[in-house]
Design a protein around this nucleic acid. Structure first.
Lengths: 317, 317
DNA sequence: GGATAACATGAGACAAACGAATGTTTTTCA
DNA sequence: TGAAAAACATTCGTTTGTCTCATGTTATCC
């Protein structure tokens, strides 16, 4: 045979662009694998296959955190151009299929969640103008019950206990950080242990103890019951911590702007940190509706783009 | 289990967009399959899988030629937006790999080929401004020999006889049509047989008989040797046919504009027509160079977009 | 300089894609 | 209108590709 049949102009696929985007955003293969719900091995294999096919390295391997090469950046630019167009097209197809109108009454369990929910809702409104969005106010003892009552259509919750007729879509995992005054003695520590909270007042939102992850999952098991003081607003909690009235625990994303200004200090709770997860609960009958599924996708995508220190949700057992 | 895990948001791939584009351009699954170098079965399977995943039909099946549905047209719009961007990115990556400069001295065997070669070269120049393009003029007895002599870098030829060190890239297949004066008695026939040429003058380009497909593959095997008259230019040949000086055979694409005006009539040669193929011959060492491979791709793509009545090349044995 | 986290690699399991053969529907033409 | 031809669909077996598991290697952090 005198000549090679080189018909096989390698065919790049959207899968590869999604991979590269995840690697670039997550800053590493392992983190990218989590986002894509794949193993690290699969990501490594796929990236290598892509690089081999192109004949060019896409990431600088001899350095961590990983950096993209010039070729990688060019392909990432393609991903940024192409993937949103693809999403828009799929959204249009979904509208052709199920219609573009609907109603979404949203109840929120977690106080700080409004921080990211508002911008996500704004983005959602742009692409689903025909969907009526409503936010339900006030504290709810059993927010998921609102779904079954027909008084809400979607609930943001940190509980994913399976219930008949309810579908829990995982959103993301986030870290709760302990907050202390800037010059507090505990600030010398890399992370805090349950005992460190003894003898301090705990400043919290006005919710029952079993809704506070720090108490339910860390302090109560260790038999520690610090006195509580309640505040309605995030800024109020921060102000009380800064003025040495006690300690608090808030999601990392909620305090990031205050940490930058040195207003308070933050430390991990336990060596690996205290992680919680958020879910969007919907009626099972609604889970397949395009405007519902896309709201959940929008929230996830928007959160990963905006919130620091969050990680993909661990899929429910 | 109370709820479905609907993680599987279907992942559309570029392969699907290429498929849909091919179906839309070719006007049917079978023709699309030829262009994609797949079987009709594979195309049917893939399209059905895509439609099932989207939950929407993309083509109107109860009607031929096939028509796209609204959903199909929306997805085709995505393909038209996305695929050129992808090609551009891959071209940029190729330039990163192999550089963006080169030299391409092109020899052309077939007289009419300039019709499509010129516009294709213009398009190529836009994306490879660093490549020096030259057209070699004059008739060549052995054009592929120019490659081995180092006097040309690419030859457009209808011969694909394997030769050491030469790679033949198939471009496309085209039909040779017999041309006759508009009111000629033979014009009542659906197609012409070898015997129909007996007793008529054959008007041809000034090349040896073995370069004329009509003589070599149809008339000579049938033992028919009509008198020849030569003309340099395509319009001259057409003018001679129109003024009843004889018959001719030219590629379908070359005569299409004249047929529309009723200047001459055209008929198939044999029931299934007389088909020929064109190849781009390059030195094997050059076949992998990005600027060479992309020239070939550009010619193919441009030809299919512009030339009527061509079909994908049958891959060489 | 050892422990740890992150990436690479090889082998096997599994699923998706493809092709050959064949069935069905639509179109064409007598 | 009815037979032949062309085009699309379907079934089944094979091939190809993708993922995971287990393990090896490399970089980073104290």
């Amino acid at each position: 045979m005198f000549f090679i049949v080189f018909m096989n102009k390698y065919h790049i696929e959207l899968r590869h662009l999604r991979l590269l985007q995840a690697v670039a955003e997550a800053g590493g293969l392992t983190a990218a694998a989590e986002r894509l719900y794949l193993t690290q091995s699969a990501v490594s294999h796929q990236l290598k296959a892509l690089e081999d096919a192109l004949g060019l390295p896409l990431v600088e391997r001899a350095m961590r955190p990983l950096q993209l090469t010039a070729a990688g950046r060019r392909l990432l630019a393609l991903a940024h151009a192409v993937l949103p167009q693809t999403d828009a097209a799929l959204r249009d197809l979904a509208k052709l299929k199920d219609g573009d109108a609907g109603e979404l009454r949203i109840a929120v369990e977690c106080h700080t969640c409004y921080d990211w929910l508002m911008p996500a809702m704004d983005r959602y409104r742009d692409v689903w103008p025909g969907v009526e969005l409503d936010l339900l106010g006030g504290f709810q003892a059993d927010p998921v019950g609102l779904l079954l009552d027909g008084r809400a259509d979607l609930v943001i919750t940190s509980e994913a206990t399976p219930r008949p007729g309810i579908f829990h879509a995982p959103l993301f995992g986030f870290e709760m950080l302990a907050l202390l005054p800037p010059a507090h003695p505990l600030a010398t520590r890399k992370w805090l242990l349950p005992g460190d909270f003894a003898g301090h007042t705990l400043i919290t939102y006005p919710v029952p103890e079993d809704r506070l992850d720090l108490i339910r999952r860390v302090l109560a098991p260790a038999g520690i019951k610090p006195p509580r003081r309640e505040a309605q607003l995030t800024v109020a909690i921060l102000q009380l911590v800064a003025s040495r009235r006690g300690l608090a625990a808030l999601p990392a994303w909620a305090v990031a702007p205050y940490l930058e200004r040195g207003y308070v200090a933050a430390r991990r709770i336990g060596k690996h940190g205290l992680w919680a997860e958020l879910y969007a609960a919907v009626r099972a009958a609604d889970a397949a509706r395009a405007y519902v599924a896309d709201f959940i996708e929008t929230v996830k995508h928007d959160s990963f783009a905006r919130l620091p220190g969050i990680r993909p949700a661990i899929i429910a057992p």
